[in-house]
Every structure is written in structure tokens, then in C-alpha cells.
Simulated assay, not measured.
Amino acid sequence: MASPIIDFLLTRNSAPILDLQEPAPSDADIATMMAAATRVPDHGRLEPWRFILYRGEARVEVGKQLAALAEQREGLLPEGRRNQELARFSRAPLVIGVVFVPKENPKIPQWEMFLSGGMAAMNLMISANALGYGTNLISNWYSDVPEGRAILGLAPDERVVGFIHIGSYAGAAPERPRPDPAKLYADYAGPWNG
């Protein structure tokens, strides 16, 4: 039986960030995307994620701070690299940070909560794509350093799931080689024996 949802999932691609243009999603579209993003498995209803919207001039300011941090860590940057850091969050009209917010729970491990954040990110991307926008998810070097996470608005105990770049996108996203699904699953064959 044909399904437009399956057809959509089997053809979903990430758009090149530099090709994401205005207009950005409207506030109504963002609200829809957020509603979809939160409809994910969340053992214990802990809500171990939150979202940060980077739009307008905030994207430029984040770039300035990231460029300054990169120079603090690496020394004077060549012009091309400095421009790359300056543009990190201003290449697309909207960037949504998906943030893992760890919660203390004796029964639910942190890794499971982080996976819930990954599912929230994927639902956010799929809903943006379904609304007609292009998306691309990245993390990058600033996600792995405390100073970078602080610039981006994360608390010390929070971690980056990913930054979803969103914008209008004309054309088809480029296809890339995909794994052969048939090689990635098998029936259970008993305990692992090396």
C-alpha cells in the first residue's frame, strides 16, 4: 500500500546550508515545528531537551563571539577562517539549537534522555521539511567546549544535540550515497560470542 509519509521519509535530504534563504519559517510554522518536535519518546515525561532560536541580529552576534573565542583558543585566524566563524549562525535565516537538558532520575539513564533529544531534533527537521523548508543539522567545534556552549546560551550541565539550520530552499537537495539497509539488520541469533 502506498503511503505519502513513507515516500516522504524515503526521499528526505539535507539542504546545503548556504542555499537556505529567506523567508524563514513564520512564528506559526515554528510553533507547529515545536509541537511536532516534542512528540517523541520521553521515558518518564522528563522533557530532557529544550530549544533555542537564533534569528535576526542574534545570529550575527553569535558569530562575532565565536570568532573571538576561536582566536582566543588558536591565535589570530586567517581571514577566510575568521569569516567562516563570523558566518556560522547567519548562513541560514533561522537556526534552532536542540539542547540536551539532563535530569536526575534513578530509573532513566542519561544516554536515553540524550537520545530523546536526538529524536526531537529529527522530528523538528521532518516537520520543517513537511512545511516546505530546507534543513541541515550540524554541531561543530563550539559544541564541545564549555565557552562555546556558554556563548550559545547553554547552562554548564547542558549539551548540544545539534543546530538545525532552516530556510526556504528551491530545488532538490543533492542525493548522497546511502547505506544498503539490507546489510544493517538481521534476525536475533543469540548472545554475542565475539
Rank of each mutant, 00 (worst) to 15 (best):
P191G: 02
K103A: 07
G118R: 01
N123D: 06
Y133T: 00
P179C: 06
F100H: 13
R59A: 13
L131K: 04
V160T: 07
G117A: 03
M1L: 10
A189F: 03
A31H: 12
K103D: 07
A186G: 06
G190H: 00
Q72W: 05
D27I: 15
F114D: 08
E112C: 05
R12D: 00
V40W: 02
V60L: 04
R59L: 05
N129S: 08
S3N: 13
W49V: 05
F8K: 13
R159F: 06
A170Y: 06
V101T: 14
S90Y: 00
P102I: 09
N105W: 14
F51K: 10
E158T: 12
G153R: 05
R12K: 10
Y169R: 00
M113N: 07
E74T: 09
W141Y: 03
R178W: 04
Y133P: 00
M125D: 00
N83L: 13
L53M: 09
T38W: 05
P106Y: 15
Q84R: 14
E61N: 09
G134A: 06
K103M: 07
I5A: 13
Y133I: 01
K103F: 03
A58K: 06
P23T: 11
E104C: 05
P106T: 14
G118N: 00
A130M: 05
K64A: 06
L20H: 10
L131Y: 02
L18C: 10
L69V: 06
D27L: 15
R176W: 07
F51Y: 11
S90R: 01
V145I: 09
D7F: 06
A172M: 09
A28M: 04
M1K: 09
G132W: 08
A58W: 02
Y54T: 09
A130E: 01
A87R: 08
M1T: 10
V62R: 15
I5Q: 07
N136Q: 10
E74N: 15
G167L: 12
K64N: 12
A36E: 05
L53H: 04
L20P: 04
R81Q: 15
A155V: 12
G134Q: 02
A155D: 14
L20S: 06
N193L: 14
D144L: 10
L86F: 08
Q65L: 13
Y133G: 02
I166R: 01
